[in-house]
Structure formats: C-alpha cells, structure tokens
Write a protein that binds this DNA or RNA. Structure first.
Lengths: 156, 156
DNA sequence: ACTATATAGTACTAAAATAGTCCTATATAC
DNA sequence: GTATATAGGACTATTTTAGTACTATATAGT
C-alpha cells in the first residue's frame, strides 16, 4: 500500500493548523487541543520537524513552535523526509549491501528512476497547496525517461 | 520512508526474470533457483500476481507460470497493487471512517490529489521499462493542479 | 536569583503490520 | 493411477511503527 505513516499524516494535520495561524507561536499542548492528536505524539512530531528545519522552536516560558519558512516554501517531500527519513521505494536504493541479490540485481537502476519520478511529484506540492481549496488543472514537469511519452495518459 | 514492501521488491525481481524468458513456463522452484528468494515466498508472490492477472498459471505436471500480457503492457502500479493492495498515501484516502479527525480534515482532498500524482508516475512505468538499460530524458505528463508550474524543477 | 513554563534528547514499551511457513485440496501430463 | 505443480487458507515469527516516560536545558517574568 505505498503509503505514508500515521505520524506523517498527523504531521500534515499539525502543519496545516499552524499554517492557518502563521503569526502565533504554538505550544505542543495548544496543538493537541486543536488537532486531537495525543500530546506525547504531537511533541515527538514537533521535535522531528524542528530538527529538519520545517519548524523553528522557542524554548522557555511563552515559547512554542512556528513555521521556519513560508507555506509556499515548504514541500511535502520535506515533511515526509523529516518524519520517516529518506524517501525510497526499495531498500537497496538508499543503502548498499542489505540485499543478497544486489550484485545480480539488474533492476536497481530503474527502481532508482521510479523513486525520482515519485519524489519529483511530491516535491512539487507545497504546504500552501495543502491548505488551498482543491482544484485541478494540467501542468507539466520532467521525469526520468523510463516514463515514456507513449505510456502517458492525461486524466484531467 | 515512502517505500514498497520486500515482497513487492521480490516480485519485481521474479517478474524481471520471467520477462527475460517469455517463451517458457516457469515453476515456483525454477524461480527460486533463478532468484534466490525462498520457495514459500516465491509461491506466495506468484499466487498474488496470478490472482490480479499479471501472470497466468498452468496447473499439473509441466505446469508453471507465464506473463499474462506483454512486458510493455504490465505497469509498476499493477504490480504494487497486486502485492500490497490499493495504493494510497493516507488511510482515509481509501477507506472512510477510520480517521477520528475525518470530518474536520481539510487536507484530505489534497492528499488524494498527491496520490494521483504518485500513481500517475508509477503507472507510466512498464515491466518492459524495468528490464531496459537505464537511460533518461525529459518528457511531460499531466498531474493535478496542486502541483504548480512555478514549483517545478527540471532535473535532467 | 528563583520559579514556572516550555522545548530537547533519549530510552523504552506496546501494538500493528509484514514476512515467511506449512498444510490440504485440486488440476494436468504421461 | 501417479507424479508434479498450482490454489487457497491458516498460522507464526519478525520487524516496524506508534506511543510513552523521563531527564536535561532554555527563557520570561517577578
């Protein structure tokens, strides 16, 4: 089921809330109240996002979290990477030596290109897009050549 | 880590092998020898792929498995779906009622569009592409409008 | 300086998903 | 009829993920 983890889903909910109130500093307990996600879990997510510069933190009394960048400058790939680590479709795409078949694995190179296609797709979606009303319209972008023009379908 | 499961990875190795020898019928034990993946696991994968019409099976003596379609007509999205079920980035994109925040979840719609973008990317990659040498070249295809032209980068 | 408040970091536990195995039934070739 | 091979389902073990707890550190306000 090619999917993101629950934590990443929660992260998107939390970030969406913060993006709607960009002027304020948000404490972990504020965000618990606003989103319904348990406090320790919110706390964990906020720490991960801060470490990867999606959020900035202010310690101490009157402290809290705020967006590090404008919503349009934070993309979904960053958010997923912050919570789940490097994005890749198969293990051997990120780390060598974990796969017994590695030396004879002829498809590794093409999996890597698929990864790039997927990454390109989610990198192009910003937090600002996430809080915008749903609309759609065709645009174009570049993907690796294994995605051939002849195979493509326009769905919109 | 936005990734496919190990079983899907094995499936790609198995299918690649079959695609290289399209004339023959391949038994589960032949494929174990060819790929190094354990027999019960190979067997499980072959059954899943057959059920979803990626492979066709012939029972009995001299039986085995073969591709149901030409390599160019089987895409990666089909393979992943056969092994892991419907592709979606968040739980609530496929099934309603599993998410407590569902009614107040304003981002559901946009996650759904991200799913489409990812699906479009992997649907465009065929099994024939997987066994081809790695090359690259820019092409274009259509994705939902949340992917804005201004955010796009050409990496090739 | 002291105290209340809030984040930082790390280690641990519990729950869920995934991977892998095994057994019985059924179909086919010779 | 028998050997060979897939079909289907149930089960177990492992790994990953989610969630919790605890201690340290920083800041605001008095």
């Amino acid at each position: 089921m090619l999917r993101v983890s629950k934590l990443t889903d929660y992260a998107s909910v939390i970030l969406t809330h913060i993006a709607h109130h960009p002027a304020a500093l948000h404490t972990a307990s504020d965000l618990t109240n606003a989103t319904g996600v348990a406090l320790p879990t919110v706390s964990k997510i906020l720490k991960l996002l801060t470490k990867k510069n999606v959020l900035v933190s202010h310690r101490g009394s009157k402290g809290g979290y705020a967006l590090a960048k404008k919503p349009s400058e934070t993309n979904v790939a960053e958010i997923i990477t912050a919570i789940e680590g490097p994005i890749s479709m198969t293990e051997c795409s990120t780390v060598s030596g974990l796969c017994e078949q590695e030396s004879s694995c002829e498809i590794k190179g093409n999996w890597h290109l698929i990864n790039r296609a997927v990454y390109t797709a989610i990198e192009a979606v910003s937090l600002a897009d996430m809080i915008a009303p749903v609309r759609r319209q065709a645009v174009s972008f570049s993907v690796p050549e294994i995605v051939k023009t002849s195979d493509l379908k326009v769905e919109n």
